[in-house]
C-alpha cells in the first residue's frame, strides 16, 4: 500500500498509545488484565460493524442503519433460542446473519435499484428496521436467565488467554483489510469512491459493487447482533441505539475520507479501539459521561481538520506542479510547428 496510508495508520497507533499512557498515568488500574479485556470486548463489537461501514464509506456511500440491524439480529436470534433452548449455536448464527443479510439487501435495493442517496435510504431503513423489531418484540426483554449457558459461553471462551471475540474481530479486520488492497473488487471500491464518473468510463459495474458493500455491512451487523446478545446476556429491541454514530466515528477518525476513495479498513479498526479506550478512561477516572461525548466530538473534528490540512497541502503542491507544466506549454509552437 502507499506510504501515505502506512504513515496514517502508524500515526493512529501512536495516538492510541498516547491515550493509553495518559489514562494509565491518572489511573494505573487501566492496565489491569480484567480491565483491558473489557476494553477489548467493547472495542470488538463496534470494530466489526466499523469494518463494514468503512467499506461502505470508501465507496462514497454511508450506512446509518447498522444499529437497527444489530438490534434486529440480536433480538430475532435470541428470541428463537429462548424458544429452542437446545438449539444449535450454528443455527443461531445462521438466523442472525440471515436477518442482517436481508436488511443489507434492503438497503442495497433502495440505493442501487431505486437510486435513493444512501444517506436518505439508510435513514429511512434505520427507522423501519428499528420499528419492525420493536413491534416484533412487543416490549419484551429476553434476559440471560432464559437463554442457555452455551450462548453466553461464546463471549467467555478464551484462546491463548484472549477472548475468542477479540480473535474473531482481528481475523475479520485482517481478511477485509487484505481483500480491500489485494482483490480487484476491493480496489474497484476505492475507484468508485474516488471518482464514480471515471469508474463508469473504465467499465466498473457500479450497481454490483454498491450492492456488495451494503449487503456485506448488513451481514457483519447480523453477525455482531448474535455476539451482542452473547456478550450482554440481556436483549431488547432498543439496544445499540447510537451504534451508527460510533461506527462512523471510528471510520472517520481511522482516516477514511467521508468523500470516499481513501483510507483503510485497518484504520477504522484502530479507530474503534481508540473510542473503546476513551470510553473506558472516562469511566475509570470517574468523569461525567458528558466528557465522553465531548472527547468523542473533539477527536472526530480534530482528526478531520488534520486530514484536510494534509490534503490541502498536497493539493497546493499539485497546483504548483501544474503551473510549471503549463508554463512549458506556452512556447510549444516551436516544437509542434
Amino acid at each position: 500500500m502507499s506510504g501515505l496510508l502506512r504513515v496514517r495508520e502508524a500515526g493512529l497507533v501512536l495516538a492510541l498509545l498516547v491515550i493509553c499512557a495518559g489514562v494509565t498515568l491518572r489511573e494505573p488500574r487501566f492496565l489491569n488484565g480484567a480491565n483491558l479485556e473489557q476494553v477489548a470486548l467493547s472495542a470488538t463489537l463496534v470494530c466489526i460493524v466499523a469494518l463494514g461501514e468503512a467499506l461502505v464509506i470508501i465507496a462514497r456511500q454511508v450506512d446509518l442503519s447498522v444499529g437497527a440491524i444489530v438490534a434486529s439480529s440480536a433480538f430475532v436470534s435470541a428470541d428463537w433460542l429462548s424458544k429452542h433452548p437446545g438449539g444449535s449455536m450454528v443455527f443461531v448464527f445462521a438466523i442472525g446473519c440471515t436477518v442482517g443479510l436481508a436488511m443489507g439487501a434492503g438497503n442495497a435495493l433502495l440505493v442501487v435499484a431505486a437510486r435513493i442517496p444512501a444517506i436518505v435510504a439508510t435513514l429511512g431503513t434505520l427507522a423501519i428496521y428499528r420499528g419492525a423489531v420493536i413491534v416484533f418484540a412487543g416490549g419484551r426483554q429476553i434476559s440471560a436467565t432464559i437463554l442457555p449457558d452455551s450462548y453466553q459461553a461464546i463471549a467467555q471462551v478464551r484462546v491463548l488467554h484472549v477472548p475468542l471475540l477479540v480473535w474473531i474481530a482481528v481475523a475479520l479486520t485482517l481478511v477485509l483489510g487484505w481483500a480491500a488492497s489485494y482483490t480487484r473488487t476491493g480496489r474497484n471500491l476505492y475507484a468508485l469512491g474516488s471518482d464514480p464518473e471515471s469508474a463508469r468510463f473504465v467499465g466498473i459495474n457500479e450497481g454490483w459493487h454498491l450492492a456488495l458493500v451494503f449487503v456485506l455491512s448488513g451481514l457483519l451487523c447480523g453477525f455482531v447482533g448474535v455476539l451482542w446478545g452473547a456478550r450482554f446476556g440481556t436483549v431488547d429491541a432498543v439496544l445499540a441505539p447510537d451504534l451508527h454514530f460510533q461506527a462512523i466515528s471510528a471510520v472517520v477518525v481511522g482516516g477514511v475520507s467521508i468523500f470516499g476513495g481513501s483510507g483503510s479498513v485497518y484504520g477504522a479498526a484502530i479507530g474503534a479501539v481508540i473510542f473503546a479506550v476513551l470510553q473506558n478512561g472516562v469511566q475509570l477516572l470517574g468523569l461525567n459521561q458528558f466528557w465522553l461525548q465531548a472527547v468523542t466530538g473533539a477527536a472526530i473534528l480534530g482528526t478531520v481538520i488534520l486530514y484536510s490540512l494534509l490534503a490541502r497541502r498536497a493539493e497546493r503542491a499539485e497546483r504548483e506542479g501544474r503551473r510549471r507544466s503549463v508554463g512549458l506549454g506556452l512556447n510549444r509552437g516551436v516544437g509542434a510547428g
Partner: peptide
Amino acid sequence: PAVFPDLTVAENIFIGRQPR
C-alpha cells in the same frame, strides 16, 4: 483524463485488470 485521484499512478493504469 478520467483518473482516480486517490489511487496510485500504477493502479490508475491497471484499474480493473490489475496483474494477479
